[in-house]
Each structure stands twice: as C-alpha cells, then as structure tokens.
C-alpha cells in the first residue's frame, strides 16, 4: 500500500513535468516558427512598400502604419473614459446594487467575443452613423473592446494607493477630486501605464473587431499630406484602413496573392515582435514612471 502510494506519487509528478514540458515546447515551437519563417522575409523594402492584392512582392507599409494609427487613436479615446470609470469604481462607488450591476455590465463587456463587438460597431458606426469602413469606426470598436480591461486596470491601480494618502489630502481641506487628481493618481500612474501598454499589445493584434469596422482595404495614402481632413492624407480618420492583423487574415482566406504565406509570415513576425516589445517594456515603463512620480529626481521649478 505504502509502496504503491509512493509509486503513484512518482508517476503523477512525472506526468506533471511531462505536461508542463509539452506546453513550454509548444510556445518555443510557436515563437520559433514565426521568427524563423518570418524574419527572413522582413526587409526594409517589405516594411516600406505598399501591399499588393494580386502579384507577389507586396509590402506592409500601410498596414503597419494603420495598426499604429488605430492603436494611438484607440488609446486616446479609451484612456480618458477608462480613467473616469476606474476612478468612479475605486473612489465613488458605494457598496450597493447599482455598483454590482455596473461591475456585472463591465464583466459582460469584457467577456463578449470580439467578433460580436465588431459586428455591433458595424451596425451602429458603419451603417447607422454612416461612418463607413473607417479608422474612426475601427478605433471606436477597439475602444469598446478595450474599455473593460483598461477600466479594471485603472481601478486596481487606484485601489492600491494607500488610504493614508487620501486622508492626507482631505485633511488639508482639499476637495476629493483634487485629492484624487493631485495625490492619488500620480501614485497610480505606474500601474495605469503598465495596463495601457499591455492592452496596446492586445489592440495591436486584434482583427475580428476590425474586419467590419476599419475595413479590409488599405487605400494608397500620401504620407506628406498632414491635413487630416484631406481624403488622401495618411491622417484622415475617415478612410478605410486594413491593419496588419487583418491583412494576415485576409491574405489567408480570400487572398489570391501568390506569395501570401511569405507576406503572412513576415507580417506575423512583425506583429509578434511588436507585441513582445509591448509585453517586455510594460514593467520597465511602469517602474520608470514610478521613479518619476515619487519625485526622487524631481528638479526645482519656478
């Protein structure tokens, strides 16, 4: 009996080791596959030339820019809303049924499939508000997709600030909002930055929410036209904009480009590298912001 138990123990722990190794090997394979097949396809030309929808040799310049532009716009729209909502949940929300309802709503939103969010964006933004397939539609759809997570990260970061800091502000006769903005928020910013960078990675790789909002075409734009209202400007938010992730999807489902898998593997590698950078840098920037915010190196002003 005793010996048996020991044998089973050995067997079980061996199995755990084996399963864990399989997972690690899967990851190594995935990253290895993307980087090995993809890196050789990445060249300066690949990154800076326009894509082709029929012939080989297309690049990803516009898709790459569109991904970045959409990311920036999404963060610009979603960060203020998330800040307000996170502050509400952390500072103002009372422990009652309304708060429970709001929290449930946020949970529901965060668990919605991104394709559903994309279709809602299609229905409301593209069709009802007639924004068409555009960067703006895409950015708003991504905002919906991003809001629950970013709100939670803001809420958590604010709740981690010691209560004593709030009391210090309030006891000096400062209003609650001044205390939040001037005392609590600076201490929460490192956590918020980490949250923003992590969600940036998610946004950058998202495609399902964009297929029917930002669209699946990348019109040729002029990178010298800085007027966002000009139809050919790269900054015009009303033009359709296929992103890198959507491009990969499109090449592999409807594409007729002969070198689809080469472009896809190159684009996948670019996507993965950018996301890796986001993931690795999130903590670094968080720590950096903490040093800034706690004022250890602050210079005298005024």
């Amino acid at each position: 009996m005793k010996i048996n138990a020991k044998k089973i123990n050995k067997l079980a722990i061996g199995t755990i080791w084996a399963l864990v190794s399989v997972v690690v090997l899967i990851l190594i394979f995935l990253l290895g596959y993307i980087l090995v097949t993809g890196l050789s396809d990445i060249s300066w030309k690949f990154l800076t030339s326009t894509s082709s929808s029929i012939s080989a040799g297309g690049g990803i310049r516009d898709q790459l820019f569109n991904s970045v532009y959409l990311l920036v716009l999404t963060i610009i729209i979603s960060l203020p809303i998330s800040l307000g909502a996170g502050i509400y949940l952390a500072e103002y929300a009372k422990d009652n049924w309304i708060t429970t309802l709001i929290k449930t709503a946020i949970e529901v939103l965060s668990s919605l499939p991104s394709i559903v969010v994309g279709l809602f964006g299609y229905l409301i933004l593209v069709i009802k508000f007639q924004l068409d397939y555009s960067i703006l539609s895409g950015a708003i759809a991504l905002t919906i997709f991003n809001l629950p997570l970013l709100t939670r990260s803001v809420e958590d970061s604010i709740e981690e600030v010691p209560k004593l800091q709030r009391e210090a502000g309030l006891s000096l006769g400062l209003s609650k909002s001044k205390t939040i903005v001037g005392v609590v928020l600076p201490l929460a910013i490192p956590g918020i930055i980490t949250g923003v960078i992590l969600s940036s990675g998610r946004i950058f790789g998202e495609a399902a929410a964009l297929i029917y909002t930002a669209g699946q075409s990348a019109p040729i734009v002029s990178y010298t036209d800085w007027n966002p209202f000009s139809p050919s400007s790269f900054l015009n938010p009303m033009r359709p904009a296929e992103t890198l992730a959507v491009h990969i999807w499109k090449l592999n489902t409807e594409g007729i480009v002969p070198d689809a898998h080469i472009v896809s593997s190159g684009a996948s590698a670019v996507l993965i590298i950018v996301i890796l950078i986001f993931n690795l840098s999130s903590r670094f920037f968080g720590n950096w912001a903490y040093r800034k915010m706690t004022g250890t190196t602050r210079k005298k002003r005024g």
Binding site: P162, L164, A168
Partner: peptide, 26 residues
C-alpha cells in the same frame, strides 16, 4: 473646516512629492 482644523495621522503620510511640494501643494 478642515483648513481650520488640521489633522496629523498615526502613520506619517507625506505625499510622494518633494519636501517643498508637500507643503506648497495644498
């Protein structure tokens, strides 16, 4: 009221700012 009746707490809770800012901020 709180401007006129100040409070100091059990655990020191200076703001995460410079010494000067701690006093000037409010």
């Amino acid at each position: 009221l709180r401007k006129n009746i100040g409070m100091v707490f059990q655990h020191p809770n200076p703001f995460a700012k410079t010494i000067r800012e701690n006093i000037q901020f409010a």
